[in-house]
Amino acid sequence: MAETIQIQVNGEQRNCRGDATVGDLLRELAIKIDRVAVELNLEILDREDFDHRSLKQGDRVEVLSFIGGGAPVDVRDRGRVFVHAE
């Protein structure tokens, strides 16, 4: 059985299997891959590579997607709660 490693996903610590790929991680998180961009240690990955890139101890993964936006949030609005998509 593969050992457990610690990685960081969107700024949060997370355990995952030592033999997991980026694709495995996204499936575990129930994230649809057709709408996300993934950065692995600041390198943007091609979608086709998600299943070929394995994770290792200390990796930093960022998973991003489109949210509602048109203008940046005005500083004066920062106290207000805007509903954001993910």
């Binding site: 994230i31 991003l64 997607s65 489109f66 949210i67 936006g69 940046p72």
Partner: peptide
């Protein structure tokens, strides 16, 4: 649209 981190702790939110 803007590009932001996906909420990984609450996957119930719609896209």
């Amino acid at each position: 649209v803007a590009v932001r981190r996906v909420n990984i702790t609450d996957r119930s939110k719609e896209n």
